[in-house]
Design a protein around this nucleic acid. Sequence first.
RNA 1: UGCCGGGUCGUCUAAUGGUAGGACUACGCCCUUUGGAGGCGUCUGUAGAGGUUCGAAUCCUCUCCCGGCAGCCA
Length: 556
Amino acid sequence: MSENTTANKPKNFIYEIIDEDLKTNKWGGKVCTRFPPEPNGYLHIGHAKSICLNYGIARDYNGKFNLRFDDTNPEKEETEYVESIIEDVNWLGTDFGDKVLFASDYFEQMYLWAVELIKKGKAYVCDLNADEIRASRGTLTEPGKESPYRNRSIEENLNLFERMKNGEFANGTKTLRAKIDMASPNFNLRDPIMYRIIHAEHHRTGNKWCIYPTYDWAHGNEDSIEGITHSICTLEFENHRPLYDWFLDQLGVHHPQQIEFARLNLNYTVMSKRKLLQLVQEKYVDDWDDPRMPTISAYKRRGYTPEAIRNFAEIVGVAKRDALTDISLLEFAIRDDLNKHTQRVMAVLNPLKAIITNYPDGKIEELEAVNNPEDPSMGSRRVPFSKEIYIEQSDFMENPPKGFHRLIHGGEVRLRYAYIIKCDEVIKNDNDEIVELRCSYDPETKSGTGTSKKKVKGTIHWVSVNHAIDVEVRLYDRLFTVENPGVEENWLSCINPNSLEVISNAKLEPFLRNAKKGERFQFERNGYFCVETKHATNDKLVFNRTVTLRDSWAKK
RNA sequence: UGCCGGGUCGUCUAAUGGUAGGACUACGCCCUUUGGAGGCGUCUGUAGAGGUUCGAAUCCUCUCCCGGCAGCCA
């Protein structure tokens, strides 16, 4: 619980607030944070930032971190979402104690507190309908008008509120409102609604309740009940803080400090749950975990690691200014992690057959290949080499541009872990398409022998034809063609039509035959890939491309 | 035209009256049996105008720009 636990970390303004609180003993040395999702959709990378922030604070200060579902609206919430959220929060590696918490477990307490406010003359039952309330709220420049029901007696309010709870009234016919100030420049203080009548089945409380607390009334109560010290939320709640404070002050209960920070926005994607839901419902993507989505489950399926996500959260930092973060920061985080930890392997995505004419028929050599040059402890493997191999179509050019380091007609290139070969002949079909290469190899140039005097500019990967396994590979690109689709009037028209490319006949070295679902590899010179966990058949392995390798040649 | 926030390299983020720094990106060089990784280097920034001060990104004033707020959503 000391400051030096964070002494070597870069501090954001929230850490500074907490340091100061510890110094002044504001909370008796306690630090308690929470992540309070509404179970109305899947978690996305922006939520991951919030989770990392809140959990990171609890961890760094030896405090406590709660996972609490803000399930106050039965019409939008589902158990499926609760389950996915728990899974994602776990996957990120947070420790939220021995149980998951729910706002719905506090409904009784909140009801009692509402009664208390009525008794203090601070809340009243209002018979205005939604339209009438909107009409009387005023505008940006004009104050609102007080409800004609604002000055009901405490007894009448108590009676009416109980009858609301008992289900005597239809949806929308009555609300419980806080009696604050209809002339406040802050709309949130113009007699905000605390309870609305919703006759709907709640995913946890069933039909026990037909009145449900609004966010404004519920949220501070939830934080208070759990003993939260720092209630961290995003900027759009800044205007709600005075109300958060007002409720807690009226109640005289534990009063956490609300602190707002700027939510994460990533370019070339959308981050609103509403939009993500629409992408799913209208089938622009597979599902919430479609690898093109910015959801946690999608990143997981695509091959991202929790470490990379956490590191990304660290890299983007925490501040109050609005930001549109470049996706390259995320890609850096995942490459950085995968580079250090993944097994290298050779895979030819778009095969072109090459026959090494002077290599003996039927001969097979088992060549040694390093598994990970970044980590010698990962050892090496044997890769079969033979007369017929596949190389990448893009590794051969008849009319190469200046600076092309790969195979050309009459030129030489090294086959990774094998020999230097020379292209002697280009075979084409009737359509003038290259269908095969005839090459010759130099036996003196075998990899690792140190006998090669030759120097070639390029090294390309390959797979032995007779040993190759056929796999499907899915290449993903950004889901949108514009940097900030979320602000476009017709954002759906900005969807990238080429965000998914399926390659059904990629060739892999046999080492991968028994790759397990979710396993990650680097396909040398191509990128990082992982075995698909969801839509894959048994007869063929399917790989998802997590991210490409940096490619300083492709950029020209 | 109301209230609340916010403006620092292309992007994200530090500097809390005392040398505007880091990461990413881009570019260049070195190295390399992955055009990967790694190493080195370069470019680019305090929204504007005044003021206070020996000294201002930081404090004051005015201006400009951006975001949020008029759900019985969160």
